[in-house]
Structure formats: structure tokens, C-alpha cells
Design a binder for these strands. Structure first.
Lengths: 128, 128
DNA sequence: CAAGTTTTACGATTATATTCGTAACCACTT
DNA sequence: AAGTGGTTACGAATATAATCGTAAAACTTG
């Protein structure tokens, strides 16, 4: 059995590019660079290099049909978020989801957020 | 104005030592090494070095009264957990706490965890 | 086609993280 | 005082991450 989906954790720089890809959809290096450089000045080839590395790690797919390759996130935002949370829960919360949630919700959490969460819980209303 | 409490994010190795310190309380390198090596074989001087670096970063305090220095976590587990969550929320959840919580709670979350969270929400029952 | 532009490929550099070997240092024992 | 064992200090080696310069390749246009 081959290891296809080894859980690769994106680095910070990689995650920032993934955020852009999730927002924009498939994009060229130029498009991605223009977007990322809005908030964080960085060189074009830096972005290119990181995308190439992400491709090696299978964090992104690459369409080489045209000269300007088109990159796309290999995994959904949801999927990646879930794995990042699971990672944090195991490394800093002794594996307890409720501890993480309790720590996440503090005095600064907005009323809307709290209502959103309450509705989510209601939707899980099974027995017990 | 000096920067005393610059938000220093512990690395993975550092976090694993902090977990031990939170669990054991102040401890010597030897005690920490014995504990960490239970689950992850590593050299004594490796642990020592990491603790020295953490001391430079002010992640731990060091009592040099006795020959075997006694290290202690500089910040509480709660405080560190909060800052790690805030970091993740900003880097992977567009700043939305509720998105993180919703992603944290999934079908695999235990009934106990869900009840814990529900009770937490109830305790926040203000107006709104 | 020649010149200029855009893009990819690749390697070098720098920074940070992790690991460990060696030596110096200190305390205790004999 | 010499030896023994536990401790810290320090630097080196390795690994990973992030950045960018240079050049070759691919296309565009005059």
C-alpha cells in the first residue's frame, strides 16, 4: 500500500500561498505574486520557488499546458484546516478538542460567533 | 519602551518540553530528559540545549541556586494555548474564531466533549 | 528572424531549528 | 589530591525554511 496522502503540514510561507489559492482559485505565479505582495513584499522567484517546492510535496497541482503554469491547491481549505487543528490539538491540548474550543472562546469572542457556535451544537443534537 | 513580552512562539521541540514542565512543575534537565525520552528517544544534551535556548528566549525561567539548574515554564499553559490558537486563527482561519471552532467540532468529537462545550456556552448566556 | 519580455529552472545564500559530541566545571568520595 | 560521576557550556553538524540572483527556455513583437 503506497503512501499517497501523507499528511504534509504546510509551512507558514506555504500556508499564505494556499490562502491565496483558495481565495482566487487556480492561478499563475504572476497572479499569486501580485496578490501576496499586496500585504507582504517578496520577490517573484521566491513565490515561484515555494510553489515548486509545494508541487514536489503535492500541496498544489500544476497545469503545464500553457507556458505560464497554473497552480491550484491540492487539498480543500476545509481539509487543511482540519488537519492543522488536529495537529495543534495533539501538540498543545493533550488531544482534547473541548479544551481547545474552551480556550478559543474567550471574553473577546463576539456575540455573533457565539451564536454561530451554539447553532452548530444544536445541529448536532442527537441523544445523550 | 522596551519589548519585554514579545510574543515568542515555541517551536515543536520547545512545546514538547513545555508540556512536560506544565505537567511536572519546575524540574531539572535530568528529570525533564527522563520524561521526554519515555516517548521520544533523544540525547541529554539535546534537551539541555533546547532549555538553554528557551531560557534565552524567556520561554522558561531558570533557578541556578543549585548545581543542577531548575527550569520552569515562564508562561502558563492557558496563556500559551491562547496565543497558539490566536496564531492559528489568524494564519488559517481568516481571523474567525467561530470558523475554527466549527472546524474543530466534527463527527469524531466525543459526546462528552460536546457536552463540555455546551456547558461552556451556557455559562456565557448573557443577553443578546 | 532579431530583439525584447516573460517564465521556469536551478543553485547559492541566509536564517532558524534540531541534534549531539567534547570539554570544562563542580561536588563528592576515598 | 586524585578519581568518579553528574552537570553546564559551547560549538559543530545536519536539516529545513525562506529568499533571491542568474541564466536558459519559451513566447511576442517589430
Amino acid at each position: 500500500m503506497a503512501r499517497e496522502k501523507s499528511a504534509v503540514k504546510p509551512t507558514e510561507a506555504e500556508l499564505s500561498l494556499l490562502n491565496i489559492l483558495w481565495q482566487m482559485g487556480p492561478a499563475t505565479v504572476r497572479q499569486i505574486h501580485e496578490e501576496v505582495t499586496e500585504t507582504h513584499k517578496t520577490g517573484y522567484t521566491t513565490v515561484l520557488k515555494i510553489l515548486q517546492i509545494m508541487h514536489e510535496k503535492s500541496l498544489v497541482t500544476r497545469d503545464e499546458t500553457n507556458r505560464a503554469h497554473v497552480y491550484a491547491a491540492a487539498n480543500s481549505e476545509m481539509h487543511t484546516q482540519s488537519s492543522l487543528i488536529k495537529d495543534l490539538i495533539s501538540k498543545a491540548f493533550g488531544g482534547s478538542t473541548s479544551k481547545l474550543v474552551m480556550r478559543a472562546i474567550d471574553e473577546s469572542t463576539s456575540a455573533e460567533d457565539i451564536n454561530d457556535i451554539r447553532q452548530l451544537l444544536n445541529s448536532l443534537e442527537k441523544e445523550t
